[in-house]
């Protein structure tokens, strides 16, 4: 998931200065999990902006409906076309991926060109939950974890070192940069022992191939059969008695 945190309210309000009619849009994906753009957060944002004297129209996306997936978000955008057309600004309560997907739908498919402002700062590909999350992946395009005991040193080491720890590992196996964080190489070292691959520690890892992460990376994929997949999800939901 995309780890994220809401921007400070004064920064959000400053970006909306002079904008009277505002559309706020949340996201049912990561932003719901991280409490930055779920239904409740969008409601709270609406309340704040109304108090600030704004004319607010809100769009909430239910859980597991991603703003960054065009077939999902376009259904909601279509319904609110008029609100978008009339607004002075759009405040996106999603990561930058959601913001740009929505912006692109409006720009390219609907010819509605509006200023967009982010309410959220994205903080990296993170896993965990329900309450504690940690950034785990750089999305570098060249995964090394087969050689590093399933722990990503590019992400978990503050320096992204590929050949063992720097000289600053603390005596308790913590990182010199932050005593709250584990030294990634300390973890790798311990885990290699446990999985019987201790000898891997002697291997030389070549300089990383960063050409795989030249942005923006563009993909072409066969479109998903949404109905088929949603039907499967429905079955799971039913089996859970929801």
């Amino acid at each position: 998931m995309m780890g994220q945190a809401q921007k400070p309210m004064p920064e959000i309000l400053e970006s909306l200065e002079g904008k009277e009619k505002v559309v706020i849009m949340g996201c049912g994906g990561c932003s719901t999990v991280f409490h930055t753009g779920g239904v409740e957060e969008v409601d709270i944002m609406e309340e704040i902006l109304v108090k600030e004297g704004k004319d607010v129209k809100k769009i909430t996306l239910p859980f597991a409906v991603f703003a960054c997936y065009k077939p999902f978000s376009s259904m909601f955008i279509e319904k609110h076309k008029k609100d978008f057309k009339n607004c002075d600004a759009v405040l996106m309560m999603s990561c930058g991926d959601g913001l740009q997907t929505v912006r692109q739908i409006l720009d390219e498919d609907m010819d509605i060109v509006k200023p967009f402002y982010p309410a959220i700062n994205a903080m990296g590909v993170s896993g965990g939950g329900p309450s504690k999350f940690m950034e785990k992946c750089q999305a570098c395009g060249e995964c090394v974890m087969g050689r590093t005991a399933g722990i990503c040193p590019l992400t978990e080491c503050a320096k992204g070192l590929l050949n063992g720890p720097c000289g600053g590992t603390r005596t308790d196996g913590k990182c010199e940069v932050d005593p709250e964080k584990d030294c990634a190489w300390y973890l790798i070292y311990e885990r290699l022992k446990k999985i019987g691959q201790y000898e891997n520690i002697d291997n030389f890892n070549e300089p990383h191939d960063w050409s795989k992460s030249v942005t923006p990376r563009i993909f072409e994929r066969e479109p998903l059969d949404i109905h088929k997949h949603l039907a499967r999800t429905k079955k799971v939901i039913e089996s859970l008695g929801i």
Partner: peptide, 8 residues
């Protein structure tokens, strides 16, 4: 020589 783990 003083950082941990020593073996590493």
């Amino acid at each position: 020589p003083f950082a941990d783990p020593f073996e590493m």
